[in-house]
């Protein structure tokens, strides 16, 4: 469960480039909810996810994960509760390390690391069976370097790494945007399976309004660092992209001029 209250964050405070990215963001996500997040470029979606993960610290406001205050904790102290997958397929894994070494890093997420061997024999069976669920044949390539894999394969492994150890929330920031359409739908399907199987609480940023409505249980739209609308349950059923656009106009008295948002 996530409770974010009145988050404010200004980049470059006091400089000519001052940029308020979060302006009173508040959002409560209940256990097991799968929230899709939309909003035009620069709306603050990535910044919000970064704030939840600890990559940026907010100027004011409060972030609770499972009712524990994490507002001031650095990234590595939140990872026991927060797992994430980045937009850049190369960012979530280490290309110079082997597949099994990457997974061995992930299996220790949020736990103490010691001087014992990182890639332990008892992990291998688990690595193989997890990789086998991807259907990419990676279970036979444990010692291959990550850099040998394609972007889609690496993103699939990133997703697997995010779900290898239990976490309370999963953050996905346009994690299919850099993939070709076929790979993107494969990774999206994988995402849905993992979230359903592990009953994860998830926040998925997407550029596609259509996808935002098709996937997940709730849709939130951000604009200028705030939530403009938040729909779930009955209200969300049967909704189409044009309904979302109407909703935005009603809320803001504006039309959306971000082409990229309309195109997808």
């Amino acid at each position: 469960m996530i409770t974010a209250t009145d988050l404010r964050l200004t980049f470059g405070e006091g400089t000519p480039l001052e940029n308020p990215a979060l302006r009173g963001m508040s959002l409560t996500v209940n256990q097991g909810e799968f929230v899709t997040v939309i909003g035009s470029n620069g709306a603050g979606k990535s910044t919000f996810l970064n704030a939840l993960a600890g990559e940026v610290l907010v100027d004011s406001g409060k972030i609770l994960v499972d009712n524990i205050d994490v507002t001031k904790l650095p990234t590595h102290k939140r990872t026991g509760r927060v797992a994430r997958v980045f937009q850049d397929p190369l960012a979530g894994t280490c290309e110079g390390l082997s597949i099994e070494e990457n997974l061995a890093l992930a299996i220790k997420r949020g736990k103490r690391r010691g001087l014992g061997t990182a890639v332990k024999k008892q992990y291998l069976e688990r690595f193989r069976s997890s990789l086998a669920t991807l259907g990419l044949g990676l279970e036979n390539r444990l010692t291959d370097k990550m850099g040998l894999l394609s972007g889609g394969q690496r993103q699939a492994v990133s997703l697997l790494m995010a779900s290898l150890t239990p976490s309370s929330i999963l953050l996905l920031d346009e994690h299919t945007a850099a993939l070709d359409p076929k790979t993107a739908s494969f990774v999206l399907e994988l995402t849905q399976n993992i979230i359903a199987e592990q009953k994860l609480t998830a926040l998925m940023v997407t550029h596609s309004m259509k996808q935002a409505l098709e996937v997940g249980t709730r849709t939130v739209m951000l604009h200028q660092g705030e939530v403009v609308f938040d729909i779930a349950g009955k209200d969300r059923e049967g909704l189409e992209v044009k309904d979302l656009l109407n909703l935005f106009e009603q809320q803001r008295g504006l039309t959306i001029d971000d082409d990229s948002l309309l195109l997808s």
């Binding site: 993960a53 990559e55 990234t75 960012a91 894994t93 280490c94 290309e95 997420r109 736990k111």
Partner: peptide
């Protein structure tokens, strides 16, 4: 090794 190769990923895996 992860820290040197990809610090952001390392942090996301809970590495200080």
């Amino acid at each position: 090794r992860a820290t040197g190769a990809n610090a952001r990923m390392a942090r996301a895996q809970g590495i200080a």
